[in-house]
């Protein structure tokens, strides 16, 4: 029994698709196994590994994700478009007409895609602005006064079903005022209140899973996909890191909000 033939037989054995291999390939390996104890042990372990891997549950895509995917695909499918057949036209006299039509059709398709986009985004932004207004008009907007981030973050322990990740402790431009618990849509949120001169800036940190998160048309800030929106005179910056969503809302200017967003992202 040569080492190289053992190695080749083991490569054939090392697959979850062993039972689907052609009968002649399996027969050849099985003949080898009859005379090779080590490869028999290898084969037994491989089939045991198949059994273990077979116990893994399959994870279905969340319904919210499927709905977003379907909406995107529907938008693509809806308008008439140009096909690869147009390649045959390229050298023809109709090129300009075709290009112009393509542009119109593409613009139509994009308008459908982008028309779908705001519903999810607007919902998030509206909710974040509403919650920001609650912070502004609440009698006690801050439940824990800031003596620094190391006092504010532990305060959330036991009050939320997740740990809000925030490493930016505030600075001279954006001093941290304190924190409280809020709600964003159907879930609890950690609320951090910063100041920018006379403007209040509210940061909501919440579990992002299952939320219709804006995707198309986002910008990249510090390698993070982010979205800057305006609603009712407020600016909102939305971004997501790992399982957590972040919404910054303020009537401060958009540049200030982006600077704070940058500081929060850089802290991660």
């Amino acid at each position: 029994m040569t080492e190289s033939s053992c190695a080749e037989h083991r490569r054939r054995l090392a697959t979850s698709r062993w039972s689907t291999l052609p009968p002649e390939a399996r027969a050849e390996v099985e003949r080898h196994l009859q005379g090779c104890e080590e490869c028999r042990a290898f084969a037994k372990a491989e089939r045991e590994l198949d059994a273990a891997l077979g116990r893994l549950p399959r994870q279905a895509a969340p319904e919210a994700l499927k709905a977003r995917l379907a909406a995107t695909l529907r938008a693509e499918a809806a308008p008439p478009s140009v096909s690869s057949r147009w390649a045959k036209w390229r050298d023809g006299r109709k090129l300009r007409l075709v290009s112009a039509t393509a542009a119109v059709v593409l613009a139509g398709a994009l308008s459908v895609v982008f028309a779908l986009r705001p519903s999810a985004t607007e919902r998030l932004v509206d909710e974040a602005v509403n919650d920001h207004l609650r912070v502004l008009y609440a009698t006690h907007p801050i439940e824990i006064e800031s003596g620094g981030i190391h006092q504010v973050k532990p305060w959330f322990e036991g009050r939320l079903d997740f740990a809000p990740v925030l490493d930016f402790a505030g600075d001279e431009e954006f001093p941290l005022q304190g924190g409280s618990i809020g709600y964003l849509l159907d879930r609890k949120a950690a609320v951090f209140v910063f100041k920018r001169r006379l403007h209040v800036v509210t940061l909501f940190v919440f579990r992002a899973e299952g939320l219709p998160w804006p995707y198309l048309g986002n910008r990249t800030l510090d390698g993070v996909s982010a979205r800057l929106e305006q609603s009712r005179g407020f600016n909102a910056l939305l971004f997501r890191q790992r399982d957590l969503g972040y919404a910054l809302v303020s009537d401060a200017d958009a540049n200030s909000l982006e600077r704070l967003g940058h500081k929060i992202m850089a802290g991660h």
């Binding site: 994870q59 994700l65 998160w213 997501r240 399982d243």
Partner: peptide, 19 residues
């Protein structure tokens, strides 16, 4: 999604990847 979830470990990353 099943593949993405096992590749990334995080639900949100898997969603982004599928999208």
């Amino acid at each position: 999604y099943n593949f993405a979830r096992r590749l990334t470990h995080q639900a949100s990353e898997a969603e982004d990847l599928v999208q």
